[in-house]
Design a protein around this nucleic acid. Structure first.
Ligand SMILES: [Mn+2]
Ligand SMILES: [Mn+2]
Ligand SMILES: [Zn+2]
Ligand SMILES: [Zn+2]
Lengths: 131, 131
DNA sequence: ATTTCAATTTAGAATAAGTATAAATCTATT
DNA sequence: AATAGATTTATACTTATTCTAAATTGAAAT
């Protein structure tokens, strides 16, 4: 049931996402593939990203920008975006369970999870701004 | 400095968003304008939504769907989306201050705010499912 | 080894949401 | 009435992504 078929192109896409320090968009992945000497159809890159997402090897992130980003960390975590430079960092601190419970009570929903995008100014931009 | 110029079309768009029970997309707003006998250019609806957003009369929501939604409630609140029927409801339970502080510590960011989209199954879909 | 068939890749067309542009229309002020 | 700035309109364009149909690949069966 969980057969994973990593073709050359899927493997290459996966490698890009896995070794990325940031959270690359599909376009970022495309560029990095070219840098590494590949040239795949862009439909293939999108197909691969979706395949890898479906197989839970990567996660698709919608951070409120126009393009999705991709993340090889599939453990539960959230993100923080710098309003100044756009960099995206991990947020590992979990939102308190009590908050989720309260939201369930308030709304009558059965709560499954939450996507959180924190906004702020990163350390680097903070120090740059102090002059 | 805070002059607000509500033209006929801006007023009409604002009325749609203000009286909406849901959180309409630009396309929803378009359709409802037509229902009320208006016929504005596509661009005008987008311009109006942006104008109203800039003047803080409404808020633009990016809930991870392809299209933005609009909200006449401008006070601080979050949203919950039903995974089954797609309905969007308000979450008024505030995010714990302690969590924000902890995120700031963890990431080194100066935290300005957070956008949360909770996911789950609404009361209606929950009861429908029990048969 | 050759055939076969499903899965995959490819190039390019199509779609969806939103933005940009330039001409036409409004509106407030002289 | 004349002018000028703001706004609206129709339409072209952009960006991100999906769809399509033909070509290619590769494993399994002969
Ligand atoms: Mn991440
Ligand atoms: Mn709301
Ligand atoms: Zn920054
Ligand atoms: Zn529902």
């Amino acid at each position: 049931m969980k057969t994973i078929n990593l073709t050359t192109q899927r493997q290459a896409v996966y490698d890009i996402v896995r070794t990325a320090e940031d959270h690359p968009t599909a376009a970022d992945v495309m560029n990095r593939l070219v840098e590494r000497g590949h040239s795949f159809a862009y439909g293939t890159v999108y197909n691969s990203l979706r395949y890898l997402t479906d197989k839970d090897l990567i996660r698709e992130l919608k951070l409120g920008e126009t393009a999705s980003r991709y993340d090889a960390r599939t453990d539960d975590h959230q993100h923080i975006v710098c309003e100044v430079c756009g960099r995206v960092d991990e947020v590992m601190t979990a939102i308190p369970e009590s908050w989720m419970t309260q939201v369930a009570e308030e709304t009558g929903y059965e709560v499954a999870g939450a996507h959180i995008v924190v906004e702020g100014v990163c350390a680097e931009c903070k120090s740059k701004r102090k002059k």
